[in-house]
Amino acid sequence: MDKIAVLIPCYNEAITIGKVVRDFKAVLPEATIYVYDNNSSDGTDEIAREAGAVVRYEHQQGKGNVIRRMFSEIDAECYLMVDGDDTYPADAAREMVDKIFEDRADMIVGDRLSSTYFEENKRPFHNFGNAIVRWSINRLFKNDIKDMMTGYRAFSYRFVKTFPILSKGFEIETEMSIHAVDKNMFVENVIIDYRDRPEGSESKLNTYGDGAKVLFTIIRLFRFYRPTLFFGTTALILAALSVGFFIPVFVTYKETGLVPKYPTLIVCGFAMIAAILSFFSGIILKTIYQKNRQDFEMDLYRVTDDFKRKLGEE
């Protein structure tokens, strides 16, 4: 088991990966640097290997797939994840790692948005998207994580080994944040300086496509983690529509004894039935969710015992 594992997912980062590996080796000399190459065609893997990294491969395209492979293959007391594009400063790594060991935190978030991100990032829609994601998750999940989509994070062993990765792409960071909040993990923020990519280095993030995936991920996880509120709100909307369209039909019936708008009446009935089904679906799913939470807590005990056993064997 490694003391510290620095995890660097990479796809065509030949321009910057050598510097990133050397910077983190200088700041964390006791760490093992892992570069996972995700089908790069520019020699990223060879440059990383020459700089002193352990190079491995993930052939399923997508950052989520790479992190899934990293988390399953590597055992470490502390994990530090960083992008290979040289946008995150290595000098913040020691503080983030120390918080895992000393504060016994489960996830440390490298907070770009409270420092230089909005000035350094030259893509205005990225800035807008980050602000929207942070606002929506803070409101929906009642948390205080400052940067939802940062790629610079530190993790404990128990977080890594109990995090079920479902996302395949860049929405993985959003999924990490929501998982930590929902499972009552101990999360701290560390403000970091952010610098834009150097000239010649191109972002792999599609502003609109990946942005839409992130928003759909938030909705999906909100439905999964907050079923009562999600389906209760849906039920309320359907019931309000049903009653709203039913009132004119009922008033006409009271005045004339006739129901001239049978299709409207039928739709109102089906809408109310859908509202009732949605309401009880939320209750049933909430019960299942509570059982999953209980199972997760038992998994934490199992993972903690496994961690202690592995430390004792070394």
Results as ranks from 00 to 15, higher is better:
Ala240Glu: 07
Asn38Val: 05
Phe118Glu: 09
Ala48Ser: 08
Tyr157Met: 08
Ser203His: 00
Leu215Val: 02
Glu95Phe: 05
Glu95Val: 10
Lys25Trp: 02
Gly129Ser: 14
Val6Asp: 00
Gly129His: 12
Leu166Tyr: 15
Asp306Leu: 12
Cys78Glu: 09
Asn12Pro: 08
Ala53Gln: 01
Asp305His: 06
Arg302Thr: 15
Arg104Leu: 03
Phe24Cys: 04
Leu229Arg: 10
Phe141Ala: 07
Thr116Gln: 00
Phe118Asn: 05
Asn39Glu: 13
Val160Met: 05
Phe250Lys: 10
Ser41Leu: 15
Ile17Arg: 13
Phe163Leu: 05
Arg139Lys: 14
Met81Trp: 01
Ile219Cys: 06
Ile47Leu: 04
Gln60Met: 08
Val249Ser: 15
Gly64Val: 03
Leu80Arg: 00
Arg302Phe: 10
Arg153His: 09
Asn143Glu: 09
Glu297Trp: 11
Ala14Ser: 08
Glu30Trp: 06
Gly312Asn: 15
Val55Pro: 03
Val27Cys: 00
Gln60His: 11
Gly52Asn: 13
Phe71Met: 06
Asp98Leu: 13
Phe280Met: 09
Ala90Gln: 04
Leu265Trp: 09
Arg220Asn: 08
Val259Gln: 15
Asn121Met: 08
Arg68Cys: 13
Phe71Glu: 04
Ile191Arg: 04
Ser203Tyr: 12
Gly18His: 02
Asn138Ala: 04
Ala14Lys: 02
Ile237Arg: 11
Ile288Phe: 15
Met107Cys: 08
Glu175Thr: 14
Ala90Thr: 02
Thr228Cys: 03
Ile178Met: 13
Thr228Ser: 00
Glu188Thr: 02
Tyr262Glu: 10
Arg104His: 12
Lys204Asn: 04
Val55Gly: 04
Arg293Ala: 03
Arg223Asp: 06
Glu313Thr: 15
Glu171Val: 03
Asp305Ile: 14
Ile137Gln: 05
Val55Ile: 06
Val303Arg: 11
Asp147Ser: 01
Gln61Arg: 15
Val54Ser: 05
Ala271Cys: 11
Glu120Gln: 07
Ala14Trp: 05
Arg112Glu: 08
Val181Phe: 00
Phe307Glu: 12
Ile284Glu: 09
Gly209Cys: 06
Arg226Pro: 00
Arg56Gln: 13
Tyr79His: 02
Phe125Asn: 00
Ser156Leu: 08
Asn292Thr: 09
Ala180Thr: 03
Tyr36Pro: 01
Tyr57Lys: 04
Val35Lys: 00
Arg309Tyr: 06
Asn143Asp: 09
